[in-house]
Design a binder for these strands. Sequence first.
DNA 1: GAAGATTGTCAATTTCCTTGACAAACATAT
DNA 2: ATATGTTTGTCAAGGAAATTGACAATCTTC
Lengths: 417, 417
Amino acid sequence: MFPSLDFPSTAIVKSVNKHAVLDLIRFHGGGVSRVDAAQQLGITRAAISAIVNDLIALGIVREAPPRPLRNGGRPARLLEIEPRYGNVIGIDLGASHMSLLIANVAAEVLYEREIPSDITAGPQPILDQMHHLVQESLAQSGISWESILAIGVGVPGPIDTASGAVISPPIMPGWDRYPIRETLKTRWGRPVSLNNDAELGAIGEWAFGAGRGERFLAYIKAGTGIGAGLLLDGKIYRGATGSAGEIGHITIDENGPQCSCGNYGCVEAYAGGKAIARAAREAIRKGIRTQLSSIPLEKITAQDVAEAARRGDLLAQQIIAQAGEHLGIAIAGIVNLFNPTTIVIGGGVAQIGDLYLEPVRRTVQKRSLPASARMVRITTALLGRRSSAMGAVVQAISLALHQAIEHERPASHVQIV
Amino acid sequence: MFPSLDFPSTAIVKSVNKHAVLDLIRFHGGGVSRVDAAQQLGITRAAISAIVNDLIALGIVREAPPRPLRNGGRPARLLEIEPRYGNVIGIDLGASHMSLLIANVAAEVLYEREIPSDITAGPQPILDQMHHLVQESLAQSGISWESILAIGVGVPGPIDTASGAVISPPIMPGWDRYPIRETLKTRWGRPVSLNNDAELGAIGEWAFGAGRGERFLAYIKAGTGIGAGLLLDGKIYRGATGSAGEIGHITIDENGPQCSCGNYGCVEAYAGGKAIARAAREAIRKGIRTQLSSIPLEKITAQDVAEAARRGDLLAQQIIAQAGEHLGIAIAGIVNLFNPTTIVIGGGVAQIGDLYLEPVRRTVQKRSLPASARMVRITTALLGRRSSAMGAVVQAISLALHQAIEHERPASHVQIV
DNA sequence: GAAGATTGTCAATTTCCTTGACAAACATAT
DNA sequence: ATATGTTTGTCAAGGAAATTGACAATCTTC
């Protein structure tokens, strides 16, 4: 119907199919046989065989130990990623912390660590800290630097994919247009992928979490701020310049309170971690009875409110329910606009659980059109705090493996625009 | 990176390339030569030649009369669609009207007509009326029914692409799940495409209007109601079940007035044609001085308000500016979420012009994140009231031509999932 | 143990693109 | 006017990858 970006010509057909087979093996839970792959990709067994044997020869894929079968016939030889091919690192840079995963290319986590880190310190100190974290983690885990094939990094801001930098990020002062990807690539001498953290959350939950295999998925990162990662029609959606999914600064009340971004009535000013803590402080100032009064006013965090709510504190429960309703309004907007099958809610605030999630569900059902509301499943992140770091791992593996099968032979002379 | 839906294999390579060449010729303003096509598609001149000559042999493409050139060398033979290959009909079914275009496959409009029609009358009477409109139009224009290759239809509701019906449409009472596409297909014995009207607006403006060639485009249909059609990464985005882009019922003020859909504070209740008329009536009831007082209160329409505003009426100008601001809030949400390059505003209310558009632009700049706001161009529909009907024409032509080159030979045995 | 079913592989064939050469048709310089 | 250079489009030969159809391998069931 419309001009497509993929222009297959015989020269790149095998390449495209090889990438497709590789991803099928990577993301198909439970193992795929050659025949499975042939059916799903719509090409013949013979063609698949040739591709799979290439991948095995490269050491990227292996045959899994045979498993009990159901039907008569020659047992299928299931395929899986060869974990010994190499390792990758995934790093999620948050507003107040930095978390790191080391995994092999089969996405099995080998090491995990999280340290506090204040992103407002600016790019140079933080990237130095990141470098030290990597070195320490390798030392502690006994994993060699040579085994690391690629590194994936996530940051909480809109990303320009071409330059590998953040552009006008609301919560990363001093980082505007700093060449993050190039800096790390040069320092590490490895391929580096740079993505928005919510985007990575979507990838992580899609690959190994609550949104497995869904083709229309939105991941909502509800933490200090609020962001969304969008997986539309099976592909990460970044928009024209890479800053799609910025749900946090959508207006839900034009006359609402001022947000840190300067506008009025953004969701983030109602439903984010900061907003929850502020609501508690205001209520206490007004003299409302609550268990939270025992905490010094200025030290109350969203986590304190969540704990109080779990212990039965009425005010805390009310604050969290209201935050959920406000987030629900914004998510209802996403549902109306994107018509997804699944919404995965992650980030720190989502850890609160049903006290937060139920109001979200209720509000979405109430405030989005039936045609879309009926279809959508709203759930918490299965990977918990690790969604984004896991997404970074997935991206790093993609980088490593797809580059490997591409460079196997000299790059095609066919220009893909 | 992610499993793609297109699985090229040698058997379908030529088919894919043929479709790509055809669309390149269709949508490239000013004519393409074989060499141009080769460069843009990344395949060789020889391959393009074979494809183009096939298309010429089928009677779908022709060589344009030679034009003056700039550079030395053999003059390029420009390609264009052969208009005599056949004709199509595009129909836009609105809430209160029905408009029809007859065009040849080169998308040159041959006949145009618009009649009043109340969509609330229900599917059977309206589809009968549509049939009569087609017959009358053919008779009046002297175009033969035999020349009509396909028909495109647009309706103002969320569409389930699989069944060709609308699902829980807010403004089409009685149409829920009525098999519109099958009914028309059977009656006419021609391929029929059924799309959402805003979707078609996006297609129309993308192909021949204000959004020519843009890859990230949102078309906002601001009429009685408000809807959006989304073109993301060069492709129409329909969502998981075809009901994406329902911007009209996004909440911009949670405590706002009740909307016809049952919720509170939807954009449509602030910025749609109905809302504009209602605001005027309420102001008059309050006794505010305005030229509109000369019109019977219950008969005031958005168009009356627009005319009064143009004549300098302060109240009318204020109402329209406020409606624009409210629409701007919703569009700012789209800009934050989708990060498009272009927003095209069409529909009846958009005809008001800058009085409406300027507040929209101002509000979007104010209420969306700088990273996305900087990139976006906001403009009125170039095709005016015809955007959607033109989109229906484009879809009908797509149906006719792509089917023609596909059925040229027996369909590929390759299953594309 | 035989029959049936499913999986994976092989050789021959087909399809379509690429390669490299060449003719056609123009502009410009001499 | 002629020669040179440039761009466009076509042709035949060659190559890459998928398809086809047959067949061996390996299981379940009768």
